[in-house]
Computed example of a mutant assay.
Amino acid sequence: MLQKMSAEALGTFILVFFGCGSAVLMGAQIGMHGIAMAFGLAIVAAAYGFGAISGAHLNPAVTLGAVLAGRLPASDAAPYIGAQLLGAILAALVILLIASGQADYSLAVNGLGQNGYGAGYLGEYSLSAALIFEFVATFVFVMVILGATSAAAPAAMAGLAIGLTLAAIHLVGINVTGVSVNPARSVGPAIFVGGKALADLWVFFAAPLAGAAVAGFAYKSLFGKA
């Protein structure tokens, strides 16, 4: 379990460092398309690097979906999620330390790639839009993960399929919520940014976890014997 927790912490660190780091440090240069690819490529790297150790969930929603689909013992969920949260927080801290080395960086103004919605946040989408997007996107993401990692699927392609799916989700939804589909990814930046980022955090727990739960039950019911 220590090896699995270490893999989950390091893999989630990679996801948040590459994804949120690209938004904070290079967002103006690479734009939303570049940020989307950074998140997708980070998943590819972590999946191939640590998938054989822990399954490379890197996401409490994925862990919940895996438990409900019968892919992971329920007793493993808490250690996995704890490691994921730790990895995300450490990554956000490292991004903050790097960004603070630029003279005109301001945490209050530039942020850390935190998720959000509503007035003053990117496309200023409503709460209902944010909830719907995060629920549907997480449902799709977890369904793809469960399918790509099933015994019948070609194992060598799983990491690529999952990474490209996350990139596609970002291409659709960055302007809506910044794209969470991952409570750990949301927690890391929010802890340091505070304020509205912390106040909005419940959305990025409730909707992704609900979407993942439905996906776990649905996959097991529809395709569990495939």
Rank of each mutant, 00 (worst) to 15 (best):
A215E: 12
G34Y: 12
W202Q: 04
G123K: 02
H57N: 11
S75V: 02
V109H: 14
V140C: 14
F141H: 03
A218E: 01
Y80H: 07
Y125V: 05
S150E: 14
S180I: 00
V214G: 00
G11T: 04
A212V: 01
L198E: 01
L146Y: 04
H170K: 03
S128V: 15
A184G: 12
G11L: 07
P60F: 15
A210E: 04
G116A: 13
I174R: 06
A36Q: 10
L171G: 10
A78R: 03
M32S: 14
G178E: 09
A129T: 14
A156H: 13
G11M: 10
L90H: 03
G31C: 07
V172R: 00
G55Q: 08
P79M: 09
V172G: 08
L107Y: 03
V181W: 09
V24R: 08
G51A: 10
G87D: 06
T177H: 05
A156R: 11
L41M: 15
M26D: 02
Y219K: 11
A92E: 11
W202H: 07
A156M: 08
L222N: 01
K225M: 02
I174H: 08
V181S: 06
L160F: 14
S22G: 13
G87N: 14
A161T: 15
L209R: 12
F135M: 08
G111S: 04
Y48G: 02
M37I: 14
A52T: 11
M1S: 01
A38F: 09
